[in-house]
Every structure is written in C-alpha cells, then in structure tokens.
Design a binder for these strands. Sequence first.
DNA 1: CCGGATCCCCGATGATACTG
DNA 2: CAGTATCATCGGGGATCCGG
Lengths: 122, 122
Amino acid sequence: MDTTKRARYDSYEAPACPVEASLELIGGKGKGILLYHLLEGKLRFNELGRRTGGMTARMLTKQLRELEFVGLVRRDVYPEIPPKVEYSLTAAGVSLTPLLHLLKEWGEQHAIELLNNLKTPQ
Amino acid sequence: MDTTKRARYDSYEAPACPVEASLELIGGKGKGILLYHLLEGKLRFNELGRRTGGMTARMLTKQLRELEFVGLVRRDVYPEIPPKVEYSLTAAGVSLTPLLHLLKEWGEQHAIELLNNLKTPQ
DNA sequence: CCGGATCCCCGATGATACTG
DNA sequence: CAGTATCATCGGGGATCCGG
C-alpha cells in the first residue's frame, strides 16, 4: 500500500480558501527549499539532501513522497546498482515558478530581517 | 511576560533559505486566510473569526499573536465596555500583497484541483 | 466581546541502526 | 545510493471552562 505517501492526507478535508490550499501544498517543512532547487531540473536524492543542509534522510523522503503524492514532483527510479533516483517537477510543479521566485524575493527583502529581529525585541 | 507571543519562536533558529523564511512567517495554520482578509483593512476579532470559518478562538488568538510578534500585524485595543480590538497589517504586512494575490491565484488555478484529486487516486 | 488557563492526545519529527 | 525500521520525544492544536 502507498499509505506512506498518503499519510498526512488521510481523512483530510481540503481548505475552501485558495490561499490556504496553496500553503497546504507547499508550506510543509522543507518543501519550499526542495521545490526551489528542483526548478533547476532533475536532482538525485542525496544531491537534494546536500542542498537542504539540516534535513534528515527520513524527512527528505517524507516530504518528497508527499510532493509526489499531490502531483507536484515526479520520481524516476533507475533499477541499477548502485540505485539511482531522480526527482523533478511535474507540469503543476513548474507552474509554481513565479510563486517560488516571489517567495524568495520577499524572503530576502523582508522575512529574513523580521526573523532576525525576534532575538532583540522591544 | 509575552511568552504567549514568543511561544513558537523561543529557541528558534531562522532558516538560511529565504523561501523557507517566508513560508515560516506566513505558512502557519490559518495565517494565509487571516493575512489575506486583512488586506481589506482593519478587522475585529470576531469578524476575522467569521471569515475563517472553522477556526477556534484559541487558534485565532494564537495565530494573530504570532503575526503580531513577528511584525506583520498590528493589534489595537480600545479600552471600552464591551471590549473592542482591531487588527490590521503593518507596513511589512502590506508588502505581502503581491505574494498573497499570487498564492490565491495559484490556489484557484492549481492547488484546489490537486487537493480534490487526492480522493480519487490512481 | 475578546480572550486566558488548563488538560490532554496524537501526529510530526529527531536519532539511530539497518538494508537491497 | 537511496532509502526503511524502530524508538522516543515534543509540541501543535482541540475541548472545555473561566474572567474582565
């Protein structure tokens, strides 16, 4: 069974608000970086791991499986020794391009600063 | 103390990736809808509650406090009987306008459909 | 009207070890 | 290389009741 993929979407009610629906799909932990790096093209599992720094293999697998399950990411397995698995964006995933760029831009211009100022409040 | 506001930001390490930083700020449960409705202008607590449907008062308070704490939302209290509290966007909050509209657009065009197709897979 | 305080459960996540 | 299995933890979030 593919309960691993479904996991967090079992007995799940889609939000009526489109803004929430979008955030539901791309807002998971680490999904932002993963999608952003996949804009470059196909990437292998460990390569994605390297680019996301502190993500454990377990989390990496989980987030990628969820992205695959909702239809934003494609997973291609090459039955070789050693194994080779490539991840890439589906058409729906590619349609995220402007959104991901805007998220990056706003992050650079506002988010990073807002988060850093939390340490020295008032 | 304002530990209530800080809560989820205590012992918190800001993400290096700007995309993740943005999602960290606006990706919380219900934050998307809240920010989106606040684009219209000042709104009172119960009015926000009505617009967000299934959100409990507790969650509403929590999310609004976090948005206030990071500097995206301003909270104005009018010491009256009965109490009156108005929420509005700060300058940083207003700077989210294009991002929120894009999130809504992508949600309408892709996210809603992707989420609905999860019920009838394969 | 706008919350605060408490109790409590369960899923999300980390650490670690193992495998085809 | 690309994961899986298992254990343990921890905090998010619902339910409920209380207060100015």
